[in-house]
């Protein structure tokens, strides 16, 4: 870890804390902050982070591809609209990565525009075999946030260097939770080895009614060891919902009060006792709100979950 980068990280954290305090002391936030601040948001299903008991809304927001819009201001505003719809519908967790192009900058832009820094459960990753601290300082600058709630080692890249770095930040009170990620079912055994040997708060894996390998070992292990689970690719990058479009929902879906396949899939995921928060990505504010509504009402029991997986398996 470079000492200069470390100082930059700490300095920007202090500066942003001071800014936050000054804003709080000054009373009302800036004008744009009033768009989200003070909004009454609906109650949604919350799930506990086992390591602390803190509860977070059971649906989050991913940014893979959808938020990589570069410097296009029109598209940045559309992303801010998605974030606004997400927050208004009760969401909190937004996930990104240094690997996702301009997504971190776009999230920072949205948080600025919406004044939503106090609302977000900020989740990002470290993804480098080089200087992890330097990358984290850059990530923090892009989000323009005083500290992260959760940082994860992306795809286990540089795990031997990056995981101790994240634990150190957590020990110093600069980070709340530590995790590791994988996707597409890759390196599952390695992830489980890390889960077994390290005191992780979170693990992020791919899971949906088609890709169910994690059900066998990883999810039970996470549940037993008190590790919260974030689910990526709940719609297989959107292709799952696209293929199901036009197909009528099964009759039992009415019991769950779902209006779309997306909601049915999310309810399937949320209902798993080990799952904490799926993070679907979208470019449409209406879809962000629709996804959040999956975290309301009844959830399927085990039998119905099997029915959901079976129906989708037949249709795909």
């Amino acid at each position: 870890m470079s000492e200069i980068d470390r100082r930059t990280f700490l300095k920007s954290a202090s500066a942003l804390s001071a800014l936050g305090a000054a804003t709080a002391l000054g009373g009302a936030g800036p004008l744009w902050a009033q768009t989200i601040a003070g909004q009454k948001r609906p109650d949604v299903i919350r799930k506990a982070i086992a390591s602390t008991g803190e509860e977070i809304p059971a649906v989050g927001l991913g940014s893979w591809i959808t938020f990589n819009v570069g410097n296009d201001m029109e598209l940045r505003d559309q992303c801010a609209d998605v974030m606004s719809a997400f927050f208004s519908a009760g969401g909190r967790m937004i996930d990104s990565s240094p690997m996702y192009g301009s997504s971190q900058d776009v999230i920072g832009y949205g948080l600025d525009k919406l004044g939503a820094r106090d609302q977000v459960f900020s989740t990002d990753k470290v993804w480098t075999s080089g200087d992890g601290m330097e990358q984290l300082a850059q990530t923090q600058e892009r989000w323009n946030i005083k500290s992260f709630d959760l940082l994860q080692v992306h795809n286990l890249v540089g795990i031997n260097e990056n995981l101790p770095l994240l634990f150190k930040l957590k020990d110093e009170g600069l980070l709340r939770y530590v995790g590791v990620t994988t996707s597409h079912g890759r390196r599952t055994e390695d992830v489980m080895a890390v889960m077994k040997n390290e005191r992780l708060d979170f693990v992020q894996v791919t899971y949906n009614p088609i890709d169910r390998d994690v059900e066998e070992y990883l999810l039970p292990m996470a549940y037993d060891r008190g590790i919260a689970v974030i689910v990526n690719r709940p719609f297989r990058g959107g292709s799952l919902v696209e293929k199901l479009e036009g197909e009528p929902l099964p009759e039992f879906a009415a019991e769950l009060q779902v209006q779309s396949w997306a909601q049915l899939i999310l309810k399937y995921l949320i209902a798993h006792p080990a799952v904490t928060c799926p993070i679907p990505a979208t470019t449409k504010p209406a879809h962000a709100a629709e996804n959040m509504r999956a975290a309301t009402g009844l959830l399927p029991d085990d039998k119905m979950r099997e029915q959901i997986a079976a129906v989708i398996g037949v249709l795909i």
Binding site: I65, N68, G70, D72, L75, M99, T283
Partner: peptide, 10 residues
């Protein structure tokens, strides 16, 4: 890491 929509908007 980007969509066709974003690419052609460039």
């Amino acid at each position: 890491l980007f969509s066709p929509r974003v690419y052609f908007r460039l």
